[in-house]
């Protein structure tokens, strides 16, 4: 399977995080993978964690909540929840996102799915409540996946990132 590059931009001094990725699939398939709880359970979150999806009602006004556990979390259970604001089939999902470990810091996730040359391009634009909230989320939430930063950095460098 080919791997498509991921583009990540976190413009300095803004609370934005933009992530773009192309998938070898149709927009309809990507939309399904993003809205069907059974499929979400198969890919959302770090590889070493288990996920319990309590609720995943991907309709305007619908709620979602899931809990990560196991792996590097040990005894800890990490809950995440939010609501779907806009859900337009195969095209657009706008939802809120809150990590329960940092309550009241609610992020807005705007996800567009576009068809480009027969593939699906997913363009995610996230708006954090502040620049500090973005830095905090990037620095703490994302670093845990790295067990051996040296080795992984070498891999990244080898790939020419």
């Amino acid at each position: 399977m080919s791997t498509n590059p991921t583009t990540i931009e976190a413009p300095e001094g803004t609370p934005f995080l933009d992530v773009t990725r192309v998938f070898d699939a149709t927009p309809a398939q990507v939309f399904r993978a993003y809205t069907d709880p059974e499929l979400i359970a198969q890919w959302l979150g770090p590889r070493d964690l288990e996920i319990d999806i309590e609720e995943y009602d991907a309709r305007p006004g619908g709620r979602y909540r899931y809990v990560h556990h196991g792996g590097h979390l040990g005894e800890q259970r990490a809950g995440f929840h939010g609501v779907f604001h806009t859900v337009e089939k195969d095209r657009l999902i706008i939802q809120t996102f809150e990590y329960e470990g940092v309550p009241d810091e609610v992020k807005l996730d705007i996800l567009r799915i576009e068809e480009v040359d027969g593939k699906a391009r997913v363009v995610g634009h996230s708006v954090f409540p502040s620049v500090r909230a973005r830095e905090g989320a990037l620095a703490s939430g994302m670093s845990h996946g790295i067990n051996d930063s040296m080795e992984r950095l070498t891999e990244l460098l080898a790939k020419g990132v």
Binding site: T6, I8, A10, L138, A139, M142, S143, G145, I146, S149, R152, L153, L156, V161
Partner: peptide, 8 residues
């Protein structure tokens, strides 16, 4: 690695 590459 703990910052944007970590996120990446």
């Amino acid at each position: 690695t703990s910052w944007i590459d970590g996120y990446r």
